[in-house]
Design a protein around this nucleic acid. Structure first.
Length: 114
RNA sequence: GAAGUAAACCAGGUGACCGCUGUUCCGGCUUCAUGGCCGGAAGAGAGGAAAGUCCGGGCUCCACAGGGCAGGAUACUCCGUAACGCGGAGUGGGGGCGACCCUAAGGAAAGUGCCACAGAAAAGACACAGCCUACCCGGCGGUUCGCCGCCGGCGGCAAAGGUGAAAAGGUGAGGUAAGAGCUCACCAGUACCGCUGGCGACAGCGGUAGCUUGGCAAACCCUAUCCGGAGCAAGAUCGAAUAGGAAAGUGUUCGAGGGCGGCCCGUCCGAUGCUUUCGGGUUGAUCGCUCGAGCCUGCCGGCAACGGCAGGCCUAGAUUGAUGGUCACCGUCCCACCUUCGGGUGGGGAACAGAACCCGGCUUAUGGUUUGCUUCGGCU
RNA sequence: GUCCCCAUCGUCUAGCCUGGCCCAGGACACCGGCCUUUCACGCCGGCGACGCGGGUUCGAAUCCCGCUGGGGACG
């Protein structure tokens, strides 16, 4: 597995997995941009799940938000904790934000987790 | 140049690095095996609207898609199409100086209903105010004894009046007691007949008729044509898990119930069954799933929509849902500054919007380019 | 993804089917006044809406079409 890849095994794909992370994990808010949940797992790899509800916009806006979050995860996953499940709930102010700004803000939170 | 109008086209490009989803091939591991996992390579990867889900189909299941009623849809003509409520070409009507645009555009002498307020009256003119007193009857007066005048009755009239969105053809003349298509001339309109042109809607011309019949069917309705119902969460296969539950009702060929969306018929299935409520369990995988009324080019037929023939091409198939990020250059637009008016430098921007079974349309959102045409203004 | 439903004052609604009596009625809320020593209750008055754009009609909240914004159901 490469250093910056993002394959299927690194994603949360089912509803119970999401709910477990959101109910039992730690919670961090980043302004009105997004909310992040953490929960360590025993799988030996990091997994990411993204929630982008209809509140933040139409299909184009939702897809764009997901892609940005995914890119941030891909760039930073080498430097964050060993085995953890992450769920990111995208907020309304994330949509017009450029990628570089988002990366800075999220890295602060993700790297604080040790 | 400005304003407008119609049509066509594009949806920034190229390169590098990292990343995502299928397909094919190669290698490794694993499995009895289909296969699965990991790594690598090649090649592919959103739209003109993918949107709204407003119509029409294909496909799948329900019975092979049956009959009638109910219900729904459509409504000038011809053509196109798998089909359409769509498109093309026309006809009639309306709008605009014009290019051009809009048009649910059958039937109101089949029937029912409605037409507020105002007005006499909103459709069977039972006539409010009004006009007239010819004919007939009565009374009074006059009389040349023929009749005349006045009043009243019986009656006649629909012209002029105001209202209203809309008032029973319009104008003029004749006619009359007063009037009226009562008659005539011209005009408008309706119906029918004939001729000419057109496949047809219809148009043009001529004649006849009664002289005239209000509007609303996006009110009910009538007529004609079309429509069986659901929808890929359709449907098929495999696997997992829980339970073979509880209550109420109903029924065993004199037949409940279901296929069958509403009813009837018809037909098929049909018995510790069916219906309702409560309770419980899975909430996975594969197929369907992308080669199709497909796309491109050329020729032919047709005014066109479109059709035919020949050649070539394979062009997304996800399922927390794949197209992104960074950098460079070029093109384009805007702003600021400089300018030798050629341009240069710096900064910023680029719309609407994301396939989910697939097509044909419609509608809506939206950035730009080009071309034809129209009107107005200027110059030559 | 597919299939349905709804929209009227600040809120809940009536009227829509069958167009005119409707510059749209009622209740609560809000504002002003009266009553009361004051508040509440009560009484009187006021403010305030047909989601948007077209069409049919003399006339549209109502009928028809197209949008917009909400809500619901599913194997």
């Amino acid at each position: 597995m490469g250093e910056f890849t993002f394959s299927k095994s690194e994603r949360l794909t089912q509803r119970p997995q999401f709910q477990q992370v959101m109910n039992r994990g730690q919670k961090r808010r980043i302004d009105r941009i997004c909310t992040v949940f953490f929960l360590p797992n025993e799988l030996g790899r990091k997994r990411l799940g993204i929630i982008a509800s209809k509140k933040i916009g139409n299909a184009v806006a939702r897809n764009r938000a997901k892609r940005k979050i995914r890119e941030v995860f891909r760039a930073l996953k080498g430097s964050i904790g060993p085995a953890v499940d992450i769920v990111v709930i995208s907020g309304k102010d994330l949509v017009p934000l450029p990628f570089s700004v988002l990366e800075k803000k999220m890295s602060k939170v993700l790297l604080a987790l040790r």
